[in-house]
Structure formats: C-alpha cells, structure tokens
C-alpha cells in the first residue's frame, strides 16, 4: 500500500463531504446558527454581567463570550461531521467506501477535511460578526497562533469522538449520543462568567472538566495574557490521543459489522 493512496482516499472522501455540506443548507445552517445565537444573545444580552464584583477580564465581555463560542464552533464542526458519518452508514454509502478504500483509516482522516472546513467557515463568520460587534483582541500574533491551534485540536478531538460513536452505532439515532456529551463538556465550564464566580454544581463540574482549562487558556490568549498554556495543551493533546484510539476502535467495530 503506497502512501499516495492514503492521501488520495482521504482527499476523495473529504471532497465529497465538503461538497455535500455546502450544497445542503440543512447541514451547515444549524452548525453555524447555534454558536452565532450564543454569541449574539450573550455578548449582547449579558454584557452587564462583567460589572459583577470579581469579574476581571481585561478584553471585555464580547471577547469573553468570543472565547467560548470559538471553542463551541470548533467542537460542533467536528460533532456535526460525526452526524454525516452516521448518515453515510445508515444509507449504506460508507459500505461502498469501505469496499473501495485500501486503507480504511484514510476514510476517517478524510472526514476530518469537512470537519475542519465547517469549523473554519463557522469561526470565520463568527469572528467577522464579533469584530463588527466590537470585539477587541489584545493578544499578539503568537497568542493568536496559540488560540487557533487549541481550536484546531478541539475540532480534531470532537470529530474523532463523533466518528467513533457513529461507526459503533451506525445510525442517525446516534445523534444525541454524540451531541449530549459534547454539550455537557462545553457547558459545564465557565461559559458566561469566570470560574471563580460559578456556584453550586456547575462549579464542581467545571473543576473537574478539562474543557475549563482549554477555555481559560483560550481567553488568556485573546486578552494577551496567556495563562495555563501548558496544562491546556497537555489536556487537548491527551484528548486528541484518546479520541484517536476511540475512533480506531469504532472503525474496527464497523469492519466487524461489515
């Protein structure tokens, strides 16, 4: 098996999904709309919250929410690709690809292309709107590199997680099994106020949720005041590594099922 065929399979799979994605509004609208709603509703509606005592974030509330929505859009780009994989399995289309592709891991790799495309498209849209709404990024070039690298890793981990679920269950009914854990991981974190201002059970959940670190590091980059960079990257890389194993197990399960 040559390396070239891995790449060409991945590209072929990726091209088809990206093509389908942009031709079908039912697929790209929800993935874009939800982060956009969150951004408008909270950056616009909740901004007064940053005057609560103990809320210190220099870049302002818009940037605070942007940090979250960026992460959300990246993760959703990956998760919604999991939906597409499940749909392909349900329709039997994946079977055709599995028969045709010499190295099947290339199929999974190929699905990352639409995941990344989705996330990039959504993040670009949200960034434009955020800038228009007065987003101020205080961080420099290196900070931004750190921010978007984190987003990229989150996107890959989410896509691998989603594909692992999709290839195990192989039905559209698997949607909630992908969406709910992703939702919980994202929202049981300091979403609207800093960690110190959280109370009750969400505070407890955010303490053990690794996404809290990622979110805090991302916001640090935006404010030009990097915090918890190493732990955040360590956690994200660990998540990516775990989800690679998860997705590989999913592929084995799909192969066993034929």
């Amino acid at each position: 098996m040559s390396r070239a065929s891995f790449g060409s399979v991945a590209l072929a799979v990726g091209w088809r999904s990206v093509h389908n994605y942009f031709r079908n509004p039912a697929m790209f609208v929800p993935g874009l709309m939800f982060p956009l709603f969150f951004f408008t509703a909270f950056a616009g509606g909740l901004s007064r919250v940053d005057s609560v005592p103990g809320f210190d974030y220099e870049a302002g509330y818009t940037a605070f929410v942007y940090g979250f929505v960026l992460l959300q859009a990246s993760a959703f780009g990956g998760i919604f690709t999991g939906f597409a994989i499940a749909r392909d399995f349900e329709s039997g289309f994946s079977r055709r690809m599995m028969l045709a592709a010499p190295r099947r891991s290339a199929i999974v790799a190929g699905y990352w292309i639409p995941a990344l495309t989705r996330a990039a498209f959504n993040v670009a849209m949200i960034t434009v709107i955020a800038l228009a709404a007065g987003l101020e990024i205080l961080g420099g070039g290196l900070d931004l590199l750190g921010l978007y690298t984190l987003a990229l890793l989150v996107n890959a981990a989410a896509m691998l997680f989603g594909s692992g679920v999709a290839m195990r269950l192989r039905t559209m009914q698997a949607g909630p099994a992908m969406q709910v854990p992703a939702f919980l991981a994202l929202f049981l974190a300091p979403v609207w106020v800093p960690y110190d201002l959280l109370v009750g059970w969400v505070h407890a959940a955010a303490t053990v949720n690794p996404i809290t670190l990622v979110l805090e590091a991302g916001r640090g980059f935006i404010a030009g005041d990097p915090v918890k960079v190493l732990p955040a990257f360590a956690v994200t890389l660990a998540l990516a590594a775990l989800t690679v194993l998860w997705a590989r197990g999913g592929l084995r399960s799909a192969e066993r099922a034929g």
């Binding site: 349900e90 329709s91 039997g92």
Partner: peptide, 8 residues
C-alpha cells in the same frame, strides 16, 4: 446511482 437507502 445512490440506491442504498431504498435497498435498505
């Protein structure tokens, strides 16, 4: 070409 759903 994509006959899979009806086959299923």
């Amino acid at each position: 070409a994509e006959a899979a759903p009806s086959e299923a």
